[in-house]
Design a protein around this nucleic acid. Sequence first.
DNA 1: CTGAAAGCGCTTACAG
DNA 2: CTGAAAGCGCTTACAG
Lengths: 340, 340
Amino acid sequence: MAPRITLEDVSKAAGVSRSTASLVLRGSSRIPESTAEKVREAMHELGYVYNRQAANLRQSRTMTIGLIVTEIINPYFAELAMAVDQITHDAGYTIFIGYSRDLQERQHEIVASMIERQVDGLLILPALDTDPDRLRKQVNAANVPIVLLARHFTGFDYVGSDNVKGAGILGDHLAALGSKTVAFLGGRLAPSFIEREKGLRTSLEERGVQLWSTEELRSTVSPEGGAAALGRLFDQGSLPDAVVAYSDIVAQGVYDEMRRRGLEPGRDIAVASFDDTRIAAGQVPPMTSVAGFPQQVGTKGTEMLLTRLADGNADIPAQLALIEPQLKIRSSTATWRPRS
Amino acid sequence: MAPRITLEDVSKAAGVSRSTASLVLRGSSRIPESTAEKVREAMHELGYVYNRQAANLRQSRTMTIGLIVTEIINPYFAELAMAVDQITHDAGYTIFIGYSRDLQERQHEIVASMIERQVDGLLILPALDTDPDRLRKQVNAANVPIVLLARHFTGFDYVGSDNVKGAGILGDHLAALGSKTVAFLGGRLAPSFIEREKGLRTSLEERGVQLWSTEELRSTVSPEGGAAALGRLFDQGSLPDAVVAYSDIVAQGVYDEMRRRGLEPGRDIAVASFDDTRIAAGQVPPMTSVAGFPQQVGTKGTEMLLTRLADGNADIPAQLALIEPQLKIRSSTATWRPRS
DNA sequence: CTGAAAGCGCTTACAG
DNA sequence: CTGAAAGCGCTTACAG
């Protein structure tokens, strides 16, 4: 194995001191172009590769940030992760990734390993069972700034879509169509679940529409979960005018289960959902969904973190930013008419 | 900002030397339990956090690997990435992620920044326009092992699914159904594209079935691309018995475009695809697809890299591993019958 | 404008 | 069993 080329080697070859070589590397204007050129040539000739880790030891920042999401099979999370990558890459950062798989313990391990590796900051889409105090303690001990994405726990910087508002708009839409009963299906006690249910409830109750949202209707965030939840609803003999799924993924199962029972989405029952991933527009019939703009959440969240990282912004209090949702109306609700 | 606690602080508090504290940290058996206990207590009390970066400078490995994929909106890539995370995490590694967005230049930048950060190895799902020699030179200069995933360029370690074989099985199936003409739609000159076309061609020609696969039928890997490609085919007045899409994502557009033209997938034309992501089973009617098992590709690829990283395995020649594909037959082909 | 020196926080032979 | 010392590859005041 060839011994690694260091700045020392470069400076010798160029006939200058190590300090000078370092200054050139960092683009200092104190070095005349003629000297700089010599150094650059030597680097090129020797095949020098910068060792940022060594530099990190002296400097206070590593130009590395950590991103932890629960998973990325869900396209909402995937888009969010790619948006984060876009901004951080352009700003010269490289990102560590970790998937918590919605397990607090794993999330904790990942945070620890990223802190050991001296990340400048952390972007986390937190696991559902996150213990906020434990997380806070962990990052405070290491003094690393953190911004939460898509799932809110109080006391942290946070960027997510405005679920309450989005759900409210959806509720208004369903009420305007003439539905008298709406079932909210799937999802668990995530912050976003609570927000969506709240927005729906407020809008619907105000308009005299019944919201069904019992414990029995909860499910995992998967097509299977959505199908099972709808199955339980039907089995107790209830037939709502509209079904709102916790998310597009859950809604996929809703479509399937309806058809298994001989019901057609958009004709017999109005169906709507949240996230507006590709899944929604790709359904047959196309499905109404509340867009949450994961790219915007990722972008805004990253910007918030980068601002924290800038000098002097460490002590500002916890910030919140909510992304404006948008209702995408498609035939799964638009073509539905009340049974008369 | 509180000054960072170092091993020096810990050793002082515990009344031992820095070397001893370090040895305890690394779990050396040379230190008696009584001393070790004192040191651990001091660490805990002071809230010591290990600085792995400093350690890296002395040791030769960073327990960090780099994963570069083109994107993760495609669920095939997302599953692959999560499989890599699973194995590496369990082995104590943390991963840097980068999305090349299928741009060679960006891929090059990402590789450079990961190398600067001293990754122990690299796992890459390469951009389509990758220049293999350039990539090879870049990683060789830094002496970092690399394994390619899902897209093969010769001379590199590689793990991917056996596209030729998978396409062959699919071709056999379509021929057995009685189709006389098969159009291969979407995709571009990716290695996997070439492999799929080749497998299809071999199987089909052997059975006297015509394969249509002209330049005009190429498209981006997106529903829109698939729809447009099918549109071009129809516009030239051709109506095949079966359509094989380059991937599930392309097939989505094929379904849409057929319906726009008043044709029903699985009844008027048999439709099949590759990857067997959630999309395939979720279509109406469910779509036949060749499963490529991204988890297995990710898992196997990571194991291959980890083996390379182990002492003494740096010099073995380039290795190849192909994951066995599997044809998932669903109604989009199963219910189709030749026009008689 | 450039060089000698100290230091970032660890680990690792080497003594004792 | 434990400590003093050198060193990993950089950067950064500080002289000159």
